[in-house]
């Protein structure tokens, strides 16, 4: 190979990273597909190809239930996180005096361990926890609130907290990019502030919103820690079932099948979302 040519240099330098990630994405995927067509017989794996795992996954009501719940919770988390984050991103991009300071302040908490943050929420929301004891001490409630922990609410709240910067940053960048003269033009042409927000700012920040939604939605469907710690039995998600197959139930082929199905569902929902969001973007422009 002639290392003096620019192209060859680029390929050679980027090869280790590309090959490493490519291998660790492709190889596990292929083996997962293989495993999903095998059968667990106690400690051994029966390698006769079969679709039994898929049949089981599709007919088992628990699998369907957890899969749908995971997608709905992830969707709720995405909507809540983006809705809460948009005004902040807007504030930092348009109004804040010290933009860098604000951005730093917002990202600092997220450099701490995710496990510990979720654990902290469990302590805050618990029956005898921080929030209830504080409200009791202040005399605002007479008995502890029970709806705080071990349900979908707790999962959505905790995840909306965990993913906050992933919503704020892309939206901030897209607001920052807007040419102020566009907004001036809208005002000069008689738009009210709400109108110019809806017809100029919002459509122009749509790419940022779509990016934020994807970055939040995709990993959230497969989240394990949050449903385990704060979800209780009403808040369990598909990742908990997958972990059981690789752990206590020791049924790796079924676990592999569930992983693949989770991945396909996420991909399908994400593609439908991007297509419809782009369609929506064209309509309001």
């Amino acid at each position: 190979m002639n290392l003096r040519s620019e192209g060859a240099k680029g390929v050679a330098l980027s090869a280790p990273a590309t090959v490493y990630v490519g291998f660790l994405v492709a190889a596990p995927l292929l083996i997962l597909v293989a495993y999903s067509m095998w059968t667990q017989t106690y400690v051994d794996i029966d390698r006769t190809p079969t679709l039994a795992n898929y049949r089981e996954a599709f007919t088992d009501p628990l699998v369907r239930h957890l899969m749908i719940r995971s997608i709905l919770i992830a969707a709720a988390v995405t909507v809540v996180t983006v809705a809460l984050a948009y005004p902040i991103a807007y504030f930092i991009a348009i109004r804040a005096q010290k933009k860098t300071l604000w951005l730093l302040l917002i990202t600092i908490p997220f450099w701490s361990s995710y496990l510990l943050r979720v654990f902290a929420w469990k302590l805050i929301l618990g029956f005898n926890g921080v929030l209830n004891s504080a409200l009791l001490a202040l005399g605002l409630i007479d008995e502890p609130l029970t709806f705080l922990l071990y349900n979908e609410f707790a999962v959505v709240l905790t995840l909306a907290h965990a993913w906050a910067p992933f919503a704020i940053l892309p939206i901030f960048v897209s607001i920052q990019k807007i040419d102020p003269s566009l907004l001036e033009a809208a005002t000069d042409l008689g738009s009210s502030r709400i109108e110019s927000f809806l017809r100029v700012t919002l459509p122009l920040t749509l790419p940022g919103i779509i990016a934020a939604c994807l970055v939040i939605f995709i990993p959230t469907v497969g989240d394990y820690v949050t449903p385990s710690l704060v979800g209780g039995s009403d808040g369990k998600m598909i990742a908990n079932l997958i972990q059981v197959q690789f752990g206590a139930a020791n049924n790796w082929p079924l676990g592999a099948t569930l992983s693949l199905l989770a991945m396909l569902s996420v991909g399908f929902v994400a593609i439908v979302f991007v297509l419809s969001a782009n369609g929506f973007g064209r309509r309001i422009r």
């Binding site: 994405v25 596990p28 997962l32 990993p219 997958i242 989770a262």
Partner: peptide, 10 residues
């Protein structure tokens, strides 16, 4: 962006 549980199990 890959979900943690899928990376881990695979």
């Amino acid at each position: 962006v890959v979900p943690g549980i899928i990376v881990a199990s695979s």
